Computed example of a mutant assay.
Amino acid sequence: MKIQPNAVVGITYELHTTNEEGQQVFVEKADSEQPLVFLYGVGMMLPKFEEHLAGLQEGDTYSFELSAADGYGELDPGAYADLPVDMFKEVELPNVGDVIPLQDNNGNQFRAGVTGVTEEIVSVDLNHPMAGKNLIFSGEILKVREATQDELNHGHAHGVDGHSGH
């Protein structure tokens, strides 16, 4: 079966970006022991990522690069905030480099990278950690199968074999 909308796909992948010198930097991977499994075509993955996998089948390998714009977007210079230290009175004050959970006024949860800490302010970067970076993917298609009706109803895959509970 070829990768198409409403197929469950299991893949291995390695993700790299490039540093300022143009050298590839390893970010993360999924291997055959713990593959990435997702329901294709329902918005779970980056659209351009899915576009590159369309039509592939079990055993095929892939390698492609997504521009920052097609990945997590360009860095937004306005996506920085200074938070009062009082916000952290019930938890340990974060350190520069930490990634902290935050919540907006609508209850949406997200993460921010701490860029500075003073006696009064915790400065955070609200950009996605991969914003502004090209994403270089390579891997293999391990499994492609039709989604079960339960998976379609739930909008996500239930594991490589379709029987993983939740």
Rank of each mutant, 00 (worst) to 15 (best):
K2I: 14
P5C: 01
V8C: 07
V8Y: 06
V8P: 04
V8R: 07
V9K: 03
V9L: 06
G10H: 00
I11T: 06
I11K: 05
T12W: 02
E14S: 09
T17N: 09
T17D: 10
T17Q: 06
T18H: 09
Q24W: 10
Q24L: 13
K29P: 01
K29I: 01
D31E: 08
S32V: 14
E33R: 11
L36Y: 11
L36A: 15
G43Y: 10
M44W: 11
M45W: 11
L46D: 10
P47A: 14
F49K: 10
F49W: 13
H52V: 03
H52Q: 12
L53T: 05
G55P: 13
G55T: 06
G59M: 03
Y62S: 09
L66M: 11
L66C: 05
G73Y: 06
E74W: 07
L75E: 12
G78A: 13
A81W: 11
D82I: 02
M87C: 12
E90Q: 15
E90W: 09
N95G: 04
D98F: 00
P101I: 01
L102I: 07
D104P: 10
N105G: 14
N108A: 15
Q109K: 15
Q109T: 15
F110Q: 09
R111E: 14
G113N: 10
V114C: 00
V114M: 00
V117S: 00
T118K: 07
I121F: 14
D125E: 08
L126E: 10
L126G: 09
L126P: 12
N127C: 11
H128Y: 09
K133E: 12
K133G: 04
F137T: 07
S138C: 08
S138Y: 03
G139A: 04
G139D: 03
L142K: 06
E146D: 13
A147N: 05
A147P: 01
T148D: 02
Q149C: 05
D150S: 12
D150E: 14
E151A: 09
H154V: 14
H154A: 15
G155V: 01
H156W: 13
A157W: 09
G162R: 02
G162H: 03
H163G: 07
H166G: 05
